[in-house]
Amino acid sequence: MLQHAHAILGISPAMVALRGYLPKIARSLATVLITGETGTGKERVAQAVHDLGPRAHGPFIALNCAALPEGLIESELFGHARGAFTGAHVAVRGHMAQADGGTLFLDEIGEMRPQAQAKLLRAIETREIRPVGGQRGVAVDIRVVAATNQSLEGMVAHGLFRADLYYRLNVARLDLPPLRDRPEDVGVLLSAAIGELNRRDDADVGRPDPELEHCLAAHDWPGNVREVRNLAEALFIDPPRGTIHFADLPPAFARLFAPYRIAVSDERARLVAALTATHWNKAQAAKAMNWSRMTLYRKLAQYHVEHSIEV
């Protein structure tokens, strides 16, 4: 797994705003709900909330609620006493106790069973847990950060998620946009991943050429940030030296991007045509090309397109 010291990367307005808001949320100690599609980096943002706050020196404990067997949810959350059930040969501290003095990150909170939701709510409100089979409660000092790729509001409306727990979690809200809504961030993310892998492997992989840049911008990245990292890792199986060309792509990515291939001259011609049709209104031209404004300006520089150009 690539690591960027939990940096929140991106030049899109959404990511710039997120980076500005994160330190304020981190300092507040409010319960945080992070929403976003799979692969948008919710755990990384949760870690950043922890790292930027006063609990940074405490533990950061992550629990994937979707991976919890129904019969073990309480034990995983609250721990259990010795002899609490068959096979409980020793007492075990649960995730909430392990997070004491730090942050408990509950990933995929929407997958938690209703019975466990009720007990989690009580533990959050009382700051006290009772291990399974235990005789007394144990005080815990934790900050809760939860994440989901589902609409909790819709789940509440359909009775699938407790409204009281939703309102307890939804204090500070961070919504992570999918990568298809911020295509200008693809190059930043790929460049960061390649830079780290170059340092790791002492390699010299460069930037994508214009044709490949077009493919990256045209793809909708359903796997989001994780898919960009996968591309970087795949490139380093047989790393090219210098500029990355379409021919350097591993077969799976070559097949994926093949529909987006066009000659660079064709894209430049389309760009000039869009600018001409909109009387050089860059906002309208960007919309016509299905680009962000940032992508449009990058393409203008890349193709040396100026207002004085003759069509």
Rank of each mutant, 00 (worst) to 15 (best):
M1H: 07
Q3Y: 12
A5E: 15
A5F: 09
A7K: 14
G10W: 11
P13S: 06
A14S: 15
V16H: 13
G20D: 12
L22A: 09
I25P: 03
I25M: 11
A26Q: 14
R27N: 09
S28Y: 08
L29G: 07
L29E: 14
T31D: 03
V32R: 05
V32W: 04
L33W: 00
I34P: 02
T35R: 11
T35M: 04
G36M: 04
T38W: 00
T38M: 03
T40I: 02
E43R: 08
V49L: 14
D51S: 13
D51P: 00
R55T: 02
A56P: 00
P59F: 05
I61W: 08
A66P: 07
A67Q: 12
L68I: 08
G79F: 04
T86E: 10
G87Q: 11
R93W: 00
R93N: 11
G94P: 07
A97Q: 15
Q98Y: 00
A99M: 06
T103N: 07
L106P: 01
E111N: 12
E111A: 14
E111L: 00
M112S: 01
P114F: 02
L120R: 07
L121F: 05
A123Y: 02
A123I: 03
R127P: 01
E128R: 15
V132L: 10
G134D: 09
Q135K: 15
R136H: 13
R143M: 06
A146E: 06
A147H: 10
T148S: 13
Q150A: 12
S151L: 01
E153R: 04
G154F: 00
A157V: 00
G159E: 08
L160M: 13
R162V: 02
R162M: 07
Y166C: 03
Y166S: 01
R168L: 03
L169N: 05
A172Q: 09
L174K: 06
R180P: 10
E184F: 03
D185H: 08
G187D: 13
G187K: 06
L190W: 09
A193V: 05
G195N: 15
E196L: 14
D201Q: 13
A203E: 14
P208Y: 12
E211R: 10
E213Q: 14
C215K: 03
D220L: 10
G223Y: 04
V228R: 02
R229H: 13
D238M: 00
P239I: 09
P239D: 06
P239Q: 05
P240Q: 04
R241G: 00
G242F: 01
T243E: 15
T243L: 13
I244M: 09
A247Q: 10
L249F: 02
P251K: 02
F253N: 01
L256D: 03
L256H: 02
F257T: 02
A258L: 05
P259C: 03
D266N: 07
L271V: 14
A274P: 08
A274V: 06
T276K: 12
T278Q: 12
H279V: 06
N281T: 04
N281S: 11
K282H: 14
K282W: 06
A283C: 01
A285L: 12
W291G: 01
W291Y: 10
T295H: 02
T295N: 11
L296N: 06
L296R: 06
L296T: 07
Y297L: 05
A301G: 15
A301R: 14
H304I: 00
H304K: 15
E306D: 11
E310S: 14
